[in-house]
Nucleic acid binder design. Sequence first.
DNA 1: GTTTAAATCGTAATGATTATCAATTAACTT
DNA 2: AAGTTAATTGATAATCATTACGATTTAAAC
Lengths: 136, 136
Amino acid sequence: MNVETALQKLKEKGYKRTKQRERILEIFVKQDQYIAAKEILKEIQNDFPGVSYDTIYRNLYMLTDVDILEATELGGEKHFRLGCDTHGHHHHFICTTCGKTKSIEFCPMDSINENLNGYDVENHKFEIYGKCPQCH
Amino acid sequence: MNVETALQKLKEKGYKRTKQRERILEIFVKQDQYIAAKEILKEIQNDFPGVSYDTIYRNLYMLTDVDILEATELGGEKHFRLGCDTHGHHHHFICTTCGKTKSIEFCPMDSINENLNGYDVENHKFEIYGKCPQCH
DNA sequence: GTTTAAATCGTAATGATTATCAATTAACTT
DNA sequence: AAGTTAATTGATAATCATTACGATTTAAAC
């Protein structure tokens, strides 16, 4: 997804176009990996020295809410990445050194639902951690 | 696993037997679910009004390190549960209301390694969240 | 240009976790 | 059974990510 597509999606949902949001989206479009919230803050501060924590966190959660970003917890910190909606539901290998990800086109839930009769599945998480070929 | 077995395991590794550790282990043996660190703190404070944060966190991490406990992150807080070493490697369904878990005797990694040539897998996480039959 | 709700700023509060160091204690030694 | 020693704990403060909030600014609809 590119920045304009994302902003268009926001507009449809009634959100305004702001310089801060553009800048946040740019960062994610440029980097195909999970990024910690504080990293985003640092980057944005280059262009907007006075950005508020509030602005960053509110937008990251909002963007996750409208499925533009995906969120996960790595090392006790919330991380975000651009949702890869070009292909369907999938999971990720995440490099513990550089943070880059590799898509895993396989979802364990497909073959598991028969074992969960009576259980109401709301969500699931499947992540693989390790070293990518470059960092290995 | 029971408290004595766990303490025996600790002794073998050179850790001392303390009242606080016994008490921590008792809590986990009694409850088959993930418990937040702060809940443990609260419980222990009933018996040891002056327990230190340090004592709780240090022991929880140490017990995780020697494979007596398992750790995960739920809702931004670290949670721990007794490792279920009676059966082999497996995963969990976790009830988002009561916290109870159900074992999933299936590991997606078994059928996925062929897709990760060149990648060094260190770890993985597969958790299913939802409502258990009692809370549904 | 006016209007208005949304968004941001500036700053403070919260809350879990980590750190420090002196005092205490478990368990080994003689 | 007392002495020794290193591990463990207690008390407290610091850290750090995240959340909260009122005042100000801004996007965009009219």
